[in-house]
Computed example of a mutant assay.
Amino acid sequence: MTLFNNRWTKTLALALAVFVSAGVAQADTLEQRISEGESIRLGFSAAPPWAYAGNDGTAKGFVNGIAIDVLKRMGYTNVEPVLTNWSSLIPSLKAGRVDIVTGGMYIVKARCENMDFSDPIGAFGDTFVVPKGNPKNLETYQDLIDQNLTMVAPSGYNTLTDARDAGVPKNSITEVPGTTEALAALRTGRTDAVPINVLEAKHAADLDDSFGISDPEAFVGRAKQVVGIGFRPEDSAFRAEFNKALKDYMGSDEMMATVTPDEYIKAFLPGELTTEDACKSN
């Protein structure tokens, strides 16, 4: 009986030690991870030209480029790309599987409630990817309603919420894991439109001549939205240092040399728009 108790006590103690150790590891700040020689894990999904993995597995796209440049200015070069589904980005950050989200997210209230954002890195609008020539003359969500048409958008994209808010019926909206699946549905005629940000829309049309885009100036959705890079709340000190380095970097020759190959132009600079104001929007 004593031997059993001793073994049970040791087993329980070991289990508790592992549990406590795991809890501590998960609670480590990014600065602590860096001090222990760990890499800075950049979380993103395949959403070119914002963020994507290169053929060699490296982090590509202008959001990754901005993050990597700024981290380098801060003295950090040990960066690890982590490719995942768009809908998994915030859960991965909260669970400690990635350290920074570089996917290219609009700063909106619901996301601000789940993670902290850097200062804005750009301001962008949305539009429809449609069959070439836009045969059904789609420009707004109301056009989908009036013609009883369907749309597909990636899970977690603001356009899903915007479409529902505009009155598009639930049975006319399909949610898929990512842009690849959404564009495949359009290519095969299973949907009429894919509402996404204008940069992804232009990129899709450039890569596939069966696609076109609706007029971004005529699109009625949300106003131009700012994009930021995501951090855990416990990394607020690191985020503050990141913002300090970002301030001098935004609009610089170094930045434009990095982002121009991925279709970012000076017109996308956020100007006086702020993360604080964006976090109040839906």
Rank of each mutant, 00 (worst) to 15 (best):
F128M: 08
R97K: 15
G251V: 12
F238W: 03
N64E: 03
L3Q: 14
D162V: 15
G156C: 13
K132S: 06
N158T: 14
M74A: 05
A15D: 02
E217I: 06
A27R: 15
A166F: 12
P195L: 09
W50L: 13
A193F: 05
Q225V: 08
K109C: 08
M74V: 11
R7H: 09
G230P: 03
A15S: 12
A46G: 07
A240Y: 08
V226N: 00
S210N: 13
L149I: 11
G37H: 10
T150P: 04
Y141E: 01
F124V: 09
I145L: 12
R111A: 13
S281Y: 05
T29Q: 05
V226A: 04
S88N: 13
D215N: 15
V108P: 00
G230H: 02
W50D: 00
E80Y: 11
R164H: 15
F62K: 03
S210C: 07
E263N: 07
T159C: 15
D165W: 09
L160S: 06
A51P: 02
D192M: 09
F4M: 09
D143E: 10
D206Q: 11
A240F: 11
G156N: 04
I34L: 12
N243L: 13
F219N: 01
D235E: 10
Q26L: 13
I145N: 01
A59K: 03
I145H: 02
T191R: 05
T102K: 05
V227W: 00
R111S: 12
T9E: 04
K109A: 08
S92E: 04
Y157N: 07
A201R: 02
W8N: 09
R232V: 14
D119E: 14
R33I: 08
E31A: 09
T11P: 05
E113P: 07
A153L: 06
V18C: 11
A95Y: 07
I213F: 04
D192C: 08
V194M: 05
R73L: 14
A22S: 11
S118Y: 03
H203D: 05
G230K: 03
K136A: 12
T180Y: 10
F124M: 06
G156W: 01
D253M: 08
L269G: 04
T260N: 11
G271Q: 07
P233L: 09
N282C: 05
D162W: 15
I100Y: 00
N148M: 08
G96D: 02
T11G: 05
T9Q: 14
S87L: 10
T159V: 14
D208P: 10
S155E: 06
V129H: 00
A15P: 04
W8G: 08
Q225P: 07
K202L: 10
